[in-house]
Design a protein around this nucleic acid. Structure first.
Length: 631
RNA sequence: GCGCCCGUAGCUCAGUGGAUUAGAGCACUGGCCUCCGAAGCCAGGGGUCGCAGGUUCGAGUCCUGCCGGGCGCGCCA
């Protein structure tokens, strides 16, 4: 298995392609963040209706205090508002009475009754019922939901956008970071999509995000790459090289590199010793591989803003500096590790080496930072790399890795704590395996047999949008089956299709409206003025609720660093819409376009428009192009 | 052996800082197209949330142990 260390990818033939030739500029920054072209809005109130109602509840609690019905000096922090599991319990439920009962030295039900009485007084509230041990279940009137609908329409493409991330400082999302030794495979695609979607999600919630790729161009593997390229170089010069020796990369993809080397150097290194060609060949091959990786990432619509070269990091002495700092703090020392517990390797010998005190920061054992030849270990450069991120001002670091690097998490987390003095936090997101399937049968992959499925193969076959969506239909830490048959199917089983279909249907309605019903302005701004009180059917309300849940869902997904929630939310909204659509087939009065009643039609178009808006905003965050027509 | 992740309906999986009677899709059964896109929708059955303890007024959710699966485990990246 290729030692691809992290997953994910991104691309575009480098405007900053010269990173490994110009050591003076290891970092290239392309300002543009890919994906969303979001309207930057002024500080805006959150449209999260849970927050809105929570504020209301806290205000009423204060009124109760002012009235002497509740002791003063209570902390309302634990008061929360959530959707009840059972819809029959109303629209939202608060635990206020229960969490305050203790501190207030009152019975939960007494607090609940008093609070409920006040909450009933609002125009948009139908009922506030005390239930169970002291919950207050709120039932909201349609006017509450139409107000949310109107907000959504007025917000347009910025619906759900918020500033909650502003306060958290710059965030660095490092993803893909595939080794520049060969083409990317499906596993990389998952990391690429995950990282990119997460970055977009964070941007959408007001975070200052940098998308970063770490180029692992300093290890022994890139020497292997250079030697492999040398074989292909000789091959291109007409030598009969036979089978690629084991230990080198046999891939056909290096033939182009060999030819490129001939073009560049002619036969200059044909019979030269390795010491002469290793470095130039390495640089050339790495540049070529990174070019391919960037091209592949471009296919997926993934673009990083910053590429950091490991080799440059070392050359600039950043590792020496970082380790020197740690040494000065007494966090690096010469020592001998205990053998791994339980299973002792046969060739185990106690060995004195330079160690980082990872145990002081939550790791299980201290970790070596220097090899016996005096060069730094991979971990040492990683310490320096993360120290550099901290130095650049990031306080939240997110690394997206393949699950096979799980054993590495603790030590890097420890390193980040150590180099930042606890000021920065690292969240490592591990992406589990992707299993390629064909109608339920695993697709066999073997690099040797040439049945290796690359990222490009997959994207070429099913398209960028399908790959992106499917990669987010499972949590990152769960294995994912990617079935070629299913993901190209046009049925409910295929979530990409299902969501796109809902979006297309919305636009179909609007197209018909523009065509058949003259004089209706279907722009969101105009529809926000529609007489939304005409929307009263339970399924219409259900759709309004689904749309209204967006701001809270985005915030929660961003906070949890879980972009898959966006994909789930989209399916939910699509399902709610399909239900309402079909209601119109059963009952003609529920169709969206009612010729005899333009006012009603306008209100329903507002609902459809907002639904399309929700679907498209969500799709854009995960990098899927919303389509207005399927065919 | 140690560490991390996972274990929810026959299958694949959600479950939002613990809270009122645990959800969806698939599969299975039965319905819905002279009608805005039936590529869709509706209805029905189906679960000791791996097991055992613990914390709590309350645990799928937090803690401990065990069982099962995945990944990793000193100068590889």
């Amino acid at each position: 298995m290729a030692p691809a260390r992290r997953h994910a990818g991104d691309r575009a033939r480098p405007p900053c392609g010269g990173f490994h030739r110009r050591n003076d500029r290891p970092l290239c920054r392309l300002g543009a963040s890919a994906g969303l072209q979001l309207v930057r809005t002024q500080a805006r109130d959150s449209m999260n209706y849970f927050k809105l109602l929570l504020d209301r509840i806290k205000a009423e609690l204060e009124s109760l205090q002012a009235a002497g019905a509740l002791p003063s000096g209570l902390d309302f922090k634990a008061v929360s508002l959530d959707p009840p599991k059972d819809p029959r319990h109303g629209d939202v439920a608060t635990n206020a009475a229960m969490v305050l009962a203790g501190p207030a030295k009152m019975k939960p039900r007494d607090i609940a009754t008093a609070l409920a009485a006040r909450l009933t007084g609002y125009d948009d509230t139908d009922a506030a019922e005390v239930a169970g041990p002291g919950f207050i279940n709120l039932r909201l009137k349609p006017s509450f939901w139409t107000a949310r609908l109107s907000e959504a329409l007025r917000a347009g493409d910025a619906y759900g956008h918020s500033d909650v991330g502003n306060a958290k400082g710059p965030v660095n999302v490092e993803y893909v970071s595939a080794n520049p030794t060969g083409p990317m495979h499906v596993g990389h695609a998952r990391g690429a999509v995950f990282g990119d979607a997460l970055a977009s999600l964070l941007e959408f919630t007001g975070h200052d995000v940098t998308r970063e790729y770490y180029i692992n161009d300093a290890g022994a593997q890139v020497d292997v790459l250079a030697r492999s390229a040398y074989m292909r170089y000789r091959e291109a010069l007409g030598d009969s090289i036979g089978e690629i020796p084991s230990g080198l990369y046999p891939g056909e993809y290096l033939r182009d590199v060999g030819e490129g080397l001939v073009e560049l150097y002619k036969n200059r290194f044909h019979n030269a010793p390795e010491s002469e060609w290793l470095q130039p060949f390495r640089e050339f091959a790495i540049a070529e591989m990174m070019g391919e990786i960037r091209d592949d990432l471009e296919l997926l619509g993934v673009r990083h803003g910053v590429f950091t070269s490991e080799r440059a990091l070392v050359k600039e002495g950043k590792v020496d500096v970082a380790l020197g700092d740690l040494r000065a703090k007494g966090l690096v020392y010469q020592g001998v590790l205990d053998p791994p517990k339980g299973k002792e390797p046969e060739d185990w010998e106690p060995r004195e080496q330079m160690l980082f005190r990872a145990t002081q920061f939550g790791d299980d054992t201290d970790r070596p930072v220097q090899k016996s030849d005096g060069s730094w270990t991979y971990f040492a450069t990683d310490i320096a790399y993360h120290a550099d991120k901290v130095r650049r001002g990031f306080r939240t670091l997110i690394d997206v890795w393949g699950a096979d690097h799980g054993g590495y998490v603790k030590r890097v987390e420890a390193a980040v704590r150590a180099v930042s003095g606890g000021k920065a936090e690292l969240d490592v997101k591990l992406c589990q395996l992707v299993k390629l399937m064909e109608r339920g049968e695993p697709v066999k992959m073997s690099k040797r047999a040439g049945t290796f499925v690359t990222l490009k193969d997959v994207v070429d076959r099913v398209g960028k949008d399908v790959v992106r969506f499917i990669m987010l239909t499972r949590r990152n830490d769960a294995q994912l089956d990617f079935d070629f048959a299913v993901v190209t199917e046009e049925s409910r089983e295929n979530p990409v299709f299902y969501v796109q279909y809902a979006h297309a249907r919305c636009h179909s309605v609007m197209r018909n409206a523009a065509k058949e019903t003259s004089g209706i302005d279907i722009s969101p701004e105009s529809l926000a003025q529609a007489e939304l009180s005409r929307l009263t059917h339970p399924d219409e309300l259900a759709l309004m609720r689904a749309i209204a849940s967006w701001p809270r869902s985005v915030e929660a997904a961003a906070e949890a660093h879980e972009p898959h929630r966006i994909a789930f939310w989209l399916r939910e909204l699509a399902a709610t819409f399909h239900t309402l659509w079909n209601r119109g087939k059963e009952e003609e009065a529920l169709r969206f376009l009612v010729d005899a009643d333009p006012t009603l039609t306008r209100a329903r178009l507002a609902l459809v428009r907002a639904c399309a808006l929700g679907l498209s905003v969500g799709l854009k965050i995960i990098g899927v192009t919303p389509v207005e027509e399927l065919r």
